[in-house]
């Protein structure tokens, strides 16, 4: 853990995460997450999957899936995953993942490349259908899909039918947040 004295701001520019509720759905900015990408080295794919499984304590997620509990991973591309963990305990997640993966994978810090919003409550599909092309019928618990929301490339993760996480690129977060909130106001 570092002991530096720089104070972080959230992607939306606040010192506290932004929370907004419309109807029965709440949108919460989630800065407390550390992310690293893990991409298997050529020819090391199965070893990498095993190492990842060990890291997250659960089999490496398959295509379009998430897995894990304290540390979770979701599928991001062929032989590539994102590892998520609480920021408080895993700020240096890239180092931790690098150690865990050894020579089997290339690890890249992604913590601040992305910003997460959690949508919780009832009626989320009505919001998401105004935002992205994903077939929500096929998104069940543990689904992870990349898609475009108002021209912003995002990940949509279904934790449960009442909790979805949306990851969008940090710099475009204002646009993404505006899109989510207007869709909530429109649909709910």
């Amino acid at each position: 853990m570092s002991v530096h004295d720089l104070v972080a701001i959230t992607a939306l520019g606040g010192s506290e995460p932004c929370v907004e509720t419309v109807g029965a759905v709440t949108c919460t900015e989630v800065p407390g997450v550390a992310l690293a990408s893990v991409a298997a080295r050529l020819g090391q794919e199965s070893k990498a999957a095993k190492a990842l499984a060990k890291l997250i304590g659960s089999p490496a997620p398959g295509i379009g899936r998430t897995s894990g509990e304290a540390l979770t991973a979701f599928w991001a591309g062929p032989e590539q995953w994102m590892v998520e963990a609480p920021f408080e305990t895993h700020e240096e997640i890239a180092d931790q993942a690098t150690t865990a993966m050894g020579e089997t994978a290339s690890v890249t810090e992604q913590t601040d490349a992305w910003t997460r919003f959690d949508l919780s409550g009832d009626g989320i599909p009505a919001v998401l259908e105004l935002l992205c092309q994903l077939d929500l019928r096929t998104l069940d618990e543990g689904s992870a899909a990349r898609c475009s929301i108002h021209h912003v490339g995002c990940f949509v993760l279904c934790r449960t039918s009442r909790l979805f996480s949306l990851y969008g690129p940090r710099a475009s977060v204002g646009t993404l947040h505006h899109a989510i909130i207007t869709a909530m106001r429109s649909a709910l």
Binding site: I63, Q133, D135, T138, A145, S148
Partner: peptide
């Protein structure tokens, strides 16, 4: 081939 049907506008 991995993700199933996706809109061409994503490409």
């Amino acid at each position: 081939p991995l993700l199933g049907p996706r809109d061409a506008s994503e490409f």
